[in-house]
Write a protein that binds this DNA or RNA. Structure first.
Lengths: 165, 165
DNA sequence: GGTGAAAATTTCGAAGG
DNA sequence: CCTTCGAAATTTTCACC
């Protein structure tokens, strides 16, 4: 959503307990504050205060439910590499806005190197992918689009590896 | 984690209200059941029962906190394409186990086509990526590994687009 | 920062249409 | 499958180390 450069400055120092809290909450955010406190060695009030602070500081972005892709009929994951025809600011903005608005797009990165953009797209079936693909190539001019289809999801996590220090 | 083929059979039919609940909970799982009920047009008990059922059926996998990658010092995202040297079952198992165990790996798919595996990896800096890379290539024999570095995260969501029907 | 307990909410289940 | 109602549990606040 926002430029990485904007976020470098405002890093609060996280101590060991904060990091433990983040590790726990990234795995299971349905635990009670008392239970989290137990696991990190804190009673519930200080644990609650730390969680509030981590949320206020934007370290914790939100709490969400994770849904099984296959159980709701979204059987296909595709990694899409895009090379742009045009490297102007206006083109980028238009492309970024168009792609960001597509609900099939789970992740969307501007890349260094040969590939300009990388997308992870989730759709129900090949027909739905074709609809997406046509939508993508008609949104803005592109030089090259490569679609790579996933056969098997071996690992997928949302929990970042919280650095030790 | 599990093979896609195993999950095709056991699809429960989700009605409009279930889909609305999933849409809401994928965006914000910190809402009270009463609030969710309001948004989907239900009082709290039936809403709560539906949520319980969605969890029991594995449609909702878990509730987690999402953490800001940059705020915890993980500045680098890398898409890694791997071509395998060996296509035996034993090799695959060893590779899958080794890569799944690496905390830097957020996503790991077996692919169709020219690339055999695709990984999304998150690390603190280039030095940490180098450590990861060496770990990866020393785990099992690989034919080719291509690392593509993200410059900017334009979109990243965990909320799947819940199909209309 | 931390503790402990009271006040405010929320969850979860019983009874019933 | 929904509604209302209430007991139990949890979250959140507060007075005090």
């Amino acid at each position: 959503m926002s430029d990485a450069a904007l976020q470098i400055a405002e890093n609060r120092r996280l101590d060991t307990i904060d990091r433990k809290i983040l590790t726990v909450l990234q795995e299971d955010a349905s635990l009670s504050v008392a239970e989290i406190g137990d696991r990190v060695g804190l009673s519930s009030t200080p644990c609650w205060k730390r969680i509030q602070r981590l949320e206020a500081d934007g370290v914790i972005l939100r709490r969400v439910a994770l849904v099984d892709q296959n159980k709701i009929g979204l059987g296909i994951s595709v990694f899409v590499s895009v090379e742009s025809a045009d490297h102007s600011e206006a083109w980028l903005r238009k492309f970024a806005d168009a792609v960001s608005a597509m609900p099939e797009v789970m992740e969307f990165y501007r890349m260094a190197g040969d590939v300009d953009y990388m997308l992870r797209v989730v759709v129900a079936d090949m027909q739905a992918y074709d609809v997406f693909y046509k939508k993508l190539i008609s949104a803005v001019p592109l030089k090259n689009v490569t679609s790579r289809f996933a056969m098997e999801k071996i690992k997928s996590v949302t929990a970042l590896p919280v650095p030790a220090a």
